[in-house]
Every structure is written in C-alpha cells, then in structure tokens.
C-alpha cells in the first residue's frame, strides 16, 4: 500500500510539471526584476550593477504629494466596485429568478453577458459616446427638459461613473454564480411558504435570500484580494486631465511613472508594494473563509 502511494505521488509531480515549468519560465524567472525596487536602476549598467539604495524608493513614494490621493482613489473605486458587484448582480439574479417565461429568461441571461466580452479599449469609446454631449444619456435627459451635462469632465462624479460602468459591464457575468446558487434552492421551501400564504416578496426575502447568504459572504471575502485593483484598462481608457484628481489610481500612476516618466525603479517599488498588500489580503481572506465558512478558497 505504501509503495503504491509514493508511486502515485510521482505521477502527481509529473502532472504538475508542464504547468510549473510554464510558471517558472514566464512568471518566476522575470521576478528577478523585483530587485529594481531596491536600486536606482540604470539601464546602462543593468540590474546586476545598478546602485543599491535600500528602501529609498519606498520612502520617496510616501513622500510624493499625490501618492495619498492615488491610494484614496484606488480604495474608493475598488471598494465601490466590490460592494456593487455583489449587490447589483444579486438583485438582478433575484429578479430574473422570478421570470416565468423560460425563453425570455434565457434570452436576457444570454444578452447581459455580452458586455463582459468587450475589452475596455472598445468599451471606452462607447462609454464616452453614451455620456457625451449628444450621447444617449443627455438625449434622454433632454426629453425631460434637463440641460445637457458634460459627465466625463466632472471630477466630482467620475469615480461613480467608473464604478457604475464597470458594474453595468459585468453584472451579467457576476450574476451567474447567484443564478447557479438559486437553482439549488429546494423548491419544496417555496411551496411550503405559498401554502402558509406568503407572497412573492416575502418568500424572496425569507427563503431565497437566506439561502444565498453563504454565497454572498464567500464572494465578498474572496474579493478582498482585489482591494488595490481599481481596474487599469478601464481608467486608462476613460480618464482625461479634468478628472485626474479623482480618477488617478495606483495602476495608472505606476504606469505613468514607469513608461512615461521613465522612473523604472519607482514604478517597480510601487508595483511590489501593491503585490505585497494584495498577498496579505488574500491570505487574510483565506484564513477568514476557512475559519468562518469552513471553505478553502484554494
């Protein structure tokens, strides 16, 4: 029996081999670049010979006047997305679950998934069109006598706009998990409730929602690792100078530091910091999920 077990172990290692090799070659090897965060990297001298400066880059990052604002923006946008990416898809799933015409249900479910497939490069020009001066939003608001507004230029609502468009783009996709969970709710519960005279609101509130609670909690915990990801592609393609103060996030900031201002070491340091925080958050969520929901994320 024992020999057989070690025999299987060998096969397991073999199975891991291609994937691990792939990770090694294209993820782990390039990590030597992390060294740059502790150097004043000079391309002429290369990573091996650049000057070591310890934590100077990190100290400098925190001294920069805009780093605070950038972190605040990142947190507001990402937390907004995390929360609404739970609530909106949930509400949608509940509503869709009440639809009785199966064909219509299928159609809706198919269509709302589509925006998920469009990259932000493409979506951005559409969003700018929608919120533009002659766009749909202003056109419709105009029917009710509203003055046209320049949404994309308004820094006081730009973060909301980012969260809103992201939620709109992804709610169909995010609702899938809830829809799946809903199919596993025991139909007997509804019948019992109906016999007790509960109306649809009541059964939704008292049966469906509690059944979904574990799922909601889990998804919430899982998304902790994304707290510093406010969505580079989206922001990069949508922002403009008028909204820098509220739209600039960690990723766009790092991007500009590195590729536009050529501050390679600073950009690496900022990236490393971000990874480290995400790693801690993921670990915390792992522990939380395991302890309280007895669920192993990975």
């Amino acid at each position: 029996m024992k020999t057989k077990k070690t025999g299987i172990q060998k096969h397991y290692y073999l199975m891991m081999l291609p994937g691990m090799l792939w990770l090694l070659l294209f993820s782990i090897v390039p990590m030597f670049g992390i060294i740059m965060a502790f150097q004043d990297y000079n391309p002429g001298q290369g990573i091996l010979h650049s000057q070591w400066i310890g934590l100077e880059n990190f100290r400098y990052l925190f001294q920069l006047d805009d780093s605070k604002q950038v972190i605040i923006n990142t947190l507001i946008i990402s937390i907004g997305k995390i929360v609404l990416n739970l609530i909106v898809p949930l509400a949608f799933a509940l509503l869709l679950n009440e639809v009785r015409n199966l064909r219509y249900k299928k159609f809706v479910q198919t269509v709302v998934f589509i925006p998920h497939f469009l990259s932000w490069v493409i979506m951005a020009s559409i969003v700018i069109g929608i919120f533009g001066y002659n766009g749909v939003v202003n056109t419709i608001a105009g029917w009710f006598g509203a003055q046209p507004q320049l949404f994309m230029a308004d820094s006081s609502i730009f973060r909301e706009l980012l969260v809103g468009t992201e939620v709109w783009k992804e709610f169909g996709y995010n609702a899938v998990i809830f829809l799946a969970a809903l199919t596993s709710v025991n139909p007997n519960l509804y019948e019992a409730a109906a016999i007790d005279g509960a109306n649809r609101w009541q059964s939704m509130w008292h049966i469906t929602l509690p059944e979904l609670t574990p799922t909601i909690v889990l998804l919430g915990v899982l998304s902790l690792g994304n707290v510093l990801n406010a969505g580079f592609d989206q922001v990069y393609n949508l922002y403009n100078p008028l909204v820098y103060s509220t739209a600039d996030i960690l990723d766009t900031w790092i991007y500009r530091l590195g590729l536009q201002n050529l501050q390679f070491s600073l950009a690496t340091a900022a990236g490393l910091l971000k990874s480290a925080v995400s790693f801690i958050l993921i670990t915390v969520s792992y522990v939380l999920a395991y302890k309280f929901a007895d669920y192993r994320i990975f």
Partner: peptide, 29 residues
Amino acid sequence: EFKARDIFMWIVIFCMLFNGGLIPWYLTV
C-alpha cells in the same frame, strides 16, 4: 494524498499576485 500540494498551491498563488514588472519580463522573453 499529495504531500507537496500546499507548497505548490502557495507558489501558484504567489505567481498570481507578484510579477517582476514589464521590463524584466520583456528581457526574459
């Protein structure tokens, strides 16, 4: 069942979150 499972798992998670940045990645490729 698979002794090294947790070690591998954490390596995988680590790879998901950390990267060396664009330039070293480019040089590697």
